[in-house]
Simulated assay, not measured.
Amino acid sequence: MNVVARGLIRAAVSSFQASRRALWFVTRPLSFGVHAIPLTERGDLILVRLTYAKGWRLPGGGLKRGEDPQEAVLRELREEIGLTGHAAVERVGEFHHRPDHRRGIAQLYLIRGVTYAPPAWSLEVEEVRAFAPADLPPDLPAVTADQLRMARLIP
């Protein structure tokens, strides 16, 4: 995809997200979600760069009504990184956060032995990349670093 098209998509998705954040500022909804710490067989951490947020983040998203959290985290990985296979799935814990003025409760899972084929195109995910845990990108948001500490992957 060319640079102009990518820029237009980023602007449209960012505007949509800004509208949602404005609504959430007023309503302060409670949201339930899941986040994944996907590790390849070599132990590399797979992170995503979203079209509407800064920095490299863990894949994740909202939990649908009645959806099992473990199934939700695998669904999110299929959607965001193109998950094609995995080994062990381990629940790390639960954390509370305030994403974009919402009150959030999320389950955090460590998924080992991940194989993936990043989607060619996505409205939400701009880039998918694997990083060695000792060589993480400098623009890692605080919430992502907190999640990695929770799983004891970084000090």
Rank of each mutant, 00 (worst) to 15 (best):
P38K: 03
Y116Q: 01
D146I: 15
P118I: 03
V89Q: 00
T51H: 13
D146K: 14
T144Y: 01
P118T: 11
D135L: 13
L108C: 04
R103Q: 09
T51E: 14
R20P: 12
W121T: 13
L63K: 01
L30H: 15
G85T: 11
H35G: 07
R20H: 14
Q70W: 13
P29C: 04
R21Q: 15
R57G: 05
P138Q: 09
L23K: 11
Y52K: 08
L140E: 04
L83Y: 01
D68N: 07
G93I: 13
V48S: 01
P59S: 05
G60E: 03
R57P: 04
G62W: 02
G85F: 02
V143N: 12
L30T: 15
L39S: 00
W121C: 06
A117D: 14
Y116G: 01
V26K: 09
R78F: 00
R28Y: 05
L45S: 01
D146W: 15
Q107T: 13
D68S: 12
D135P: 07
P119R: 08
I46V: 10
P141W: 03
L63M: 10
I46T: 06
L39V: 01
E124M: 12
W56A: 13
E41K: 04
E126L: 11
P119N: 06
V73G: 02
P29E: 07
V89E: 00
L136C: 03
V48P: 10
E90V: 14
D139W: 10
F131W: 04
D100G: 10
R129G: 08
A106R: 06
G60C: 06
D68P: 06
K54H: 15
P29K: 11
T144E: 03
L47I: 09
H96N: 14
A142Q: 10
S31I: 15
G62D: 10
P119K: 05
L140N: 07
G61Q: 05
H101R: 09
V143Q: 11
R21N: 12
G66K: 06
P99E: 07
A22N: 09
G55T: 12
P69K: 02
H96P: 01
E41R: 06
L108S: 02
W121R: 08
A142L: 13
P38Q: 02
R102I: 11
Q70A: 15
R102Y: 10
H35N: 09
R98W: 10
P59Y: 08
L63F: 08
K64R: 14
L50R: 14
V73F: 01
R102S: 13
E71P: 06
D135T: 11
R20S: 13
L108G: 07
P137F: 07
F95S: 10
E76M: 03
P137R: 08
I105K: 08
L23D: 14
Y52W: 13
T144L: 04
A53K: 06
G66H: 04
E79P: 08
H96A: 15
A145E: 11
A120F: 11
Y116V: 05
R21S: 14
P133E: 04
R103C: 08
K54F: 10
F95T: 15
